[in-house]
Write a protein that binds this DNA or RNA. Structure first.
Lengths: 385, 385
DNA sequence: AACGGAAACGTTAACGTTACCGATAGATAG
DNA sequence: CTATCTATCGGTAACGTTAACGTTTCCGTT
């Protein structure tokens, strides 16, 4: 027989066991028809580690001040309906008690987190980190935090990142697609829902989602025209994935320039790659075998252009006399390589800034601008062309 | 006289105005001693825009399933105390209703956000974005999100960022200090509180905060010894802010190497700068005036080293014959410049990874490792030395 | 039949904040 | 003096989720 006292009638007799709930014995008192479990009174002072330091809340301040939580909230949020005296008292109290508002609770009730999500293909490529820098700068100025997600140029990672970010926590999403990305179904299901989206740099042109683009068409056109003016006729061009806007648009600019100058477009001079060193080398070797010989190479990225220059140097092919080389992006390295790299400055930081501005504008005004915005760039002539 | 009916006694007579509350008329019924405001019944169907699409919550599922919220929560969280049948029913329902848990609410009650805050000086410098990449990689694998804050090498911005991040929202903080940062009081007040901190790369050595360091002493020592072996005796060194660990430690390694080889340390060969191009040039010009002539320059950063090489080239000073140049960091550009840059690879990505590992370990096990952890690097010999 | 065990559910109270509604006292106008 | 106003406060219910605790039902033992 268990020697247990009923907490209701205070009796010891007539108490039966009545099952076990979560590893604890349950009892039943016959006399007062009452089920109970012996509850161990917890020691409230069991502050095990230092992290247990609780943040002061509105409740704490209200208790000390002898006021209601509402009043304290009013005082700290500069609301009307409060006297200047109590306001000051509360504010002083809050500062001495080192009060910091709980942003999570605020977010829950306001349904706004002041956080932007950014999905980019890589952090170790200058253009992307530069764009991210631009995004962060504008976001920080507007009081937004930035959560980053790196897709590592992998389509599946991009999808996973999208899911993770879309769950909650963010007010808006900025996305720059993977080199691999050819289908955009994962994005489509989020369009027009709770969270606004902006695409930047690498975008899906036909998606009804606001987009910020570098001046790909004009850039490629200017570069090609410059090379033609310099006497080049067999101009090769290195492109990325076919489904990406940067490949399409830059190819478009390239073609426009050729057509304007009555030069036939030769498909053997076009090459779509994924920017690995092997594929770059493969492309050059194929081009070098052609006759008549090519006299210029335009690369869609500075990184590849630099590798091209190095390869040509190794093969004792003079740049720019035999083959002129043009890059895209104006990365740091281009200025210091010999011969220094001519390139088109896509103004990547500004692309990031504009993307951030666009989404913040949409968040504030609730107005979507679907017309693609193009960020102007400029051609930079150095020794390689 | 207002023609208003009392909602309590339904009378029209004896009703007086009784002030205005928030721009709305308030009335007082004499008969039943009752104050009231005519309340406009809100139109519940005022779904103005598409963002109003409410996420489905546990409550919604519970309502549809005819079960309690708790049971639904149990089913979706794979808790015991639930039958396999109802579990399946609820899970299916959740998927058809497209349920996504509200992370903000979870964070509020669990007091954990699964988010790390990172403060870095810049996003446009390769080493920092590379470290960030390492941090993100590890964090993502462990299921943590990453919020970035860029201090732009400004001390005040670092303080502001710290405040903003510490408020809430993050479970842990990773910080790499500004070039300017010489006082660390802003950090000190957060030590040992609710949120664990880890310093990386640029750290305050004497702070009781876990830290991840590059192998500054050995790196500088190896570089200096290599130069000495090559016959250099007047080795200049370009350093950052005096209060930073990277400056102190690298100077230490430099001195060790000199002392080992019985070479006197010449203070005129040391220079602390903030890495602006002007200060780099100023430093070189000062050094070039010295007699006997210097025969090597070690720069604390690759970026400056590249600028040094370019300056020397312009001045027709041969690198490496007249002056050998060594960098620190192994950035992309070093491989492509002519002469290619010898450097010490500090393994920056690994620094980021280790920092992230350290803080996640601390978050899980609640154990702090105050012993500084040093990430090994390796010397890379190219043409400039 | 009486008792004990276990599974499977429900209730309630948090977490910290804000929004909506209401209440009161003292001031003011007529 | 009475009717009205204004300024300043409090109460309560959300927001969506989890955790601690109770309850019910069904089944096997004695």
């Amino acid at each position: 027989m268990p020697r247990v006292r009923c907490p209701k009638c205070n009796n010891i007799e007539g108490i039966l066991k009545a099952g076990i709930v979560r590893y604890r014995q349950r009892y039943y008192c016959k006399k007062c028809d009452y089920h109970f479990i012996i509850t161990i009174v917890k020691n409230k002072n069991n502050q095990q580690s230092k992290w247990n330091e609780k943040q002061t809340s509105l409740k704490d301040i209200a208790q000390v001040a002898g006021l209601s939580i509402t009043t304290v909230s009013r005082a700290l949020n500069n609301r009307p309906d409060i006297s200047i005296q109590t306001r000051n008292i509360i504010r002083e109290l809050a500062s001495t008690m080192n009060y910091q508002p709980n942003i999570v609770a605020q977010s829950l009730v306001k349904r706004v987190t002041h956080t932007l999500g950014v999905i980019i293909p890589s952090l170790e490529t200058t253009i992307f980190s530069t764009m991210l820098s631009g995004i962060h700068e504008i976001a920080a100025k507007a009081g937004y935090k930035v959560i980053i997600c790196v897709s590592n140029e992998k389509h599946e990672t991009e999808i996973a990142n999208l899911q993770a970010l879309m769950n909650n926590m963010i007010d808006g999403l900025l996305i720059c697609h993977t080199n691999q990305t050819s289908s955009f179904e994962h994005l489509r299901s989020h369009i027009g829902k709770r969270i606004p989206i902006v695409q930047f740099y690498r975008v899906a042109l036909d998606l009804p989602v606001p987009q910020i683009l570098a001046d790909d068409i004009h850039g490629a056109q200017q570069v090609t025209e410059y090379l033609i003016k310099k006497g080049c006729r067999k101009i090769a061009i290195l492109l990325g994935s076919k489904s990406l806007s940067i490949s399409q648009k830059r190819l478009e600019g390239y073609k426009i320039a050729l057509q304007k100058n009555n030069i036939k477009i030769d498909n053997k001079l076009l090459c779509h790659i994924d920017f690995s060193l092997e594929m770059v080398v493969e492309a050059i070797e194929k081009w070098l075998k052609l006759t008549p010989k090519i006299d210029a190479i335009i690369s869609i990225s500075d990184k590849s252009a630099v590798q091209i220059i190095r390869y040509l140097k190794k093969k004792k092919i003079n740049v720019p006399d035999q083959i002129k080389v043009f890059g895209f992006g104006n990365e740091f390295v281009g200025e210091f390589i010999a011969p220094s790299l001519s390139t088109f400055d896509t103004n990547t930081k500004l692309v990031g800034e504009e993307a951030a501005k666009l989404i913040i504008e949409e968040l504030i005004t609730d107005v979507q601008i679907l017309e693609p915005k193009i960020v102007a760039g400029k051609i930079i002539i150095r020794d390689s062309a």
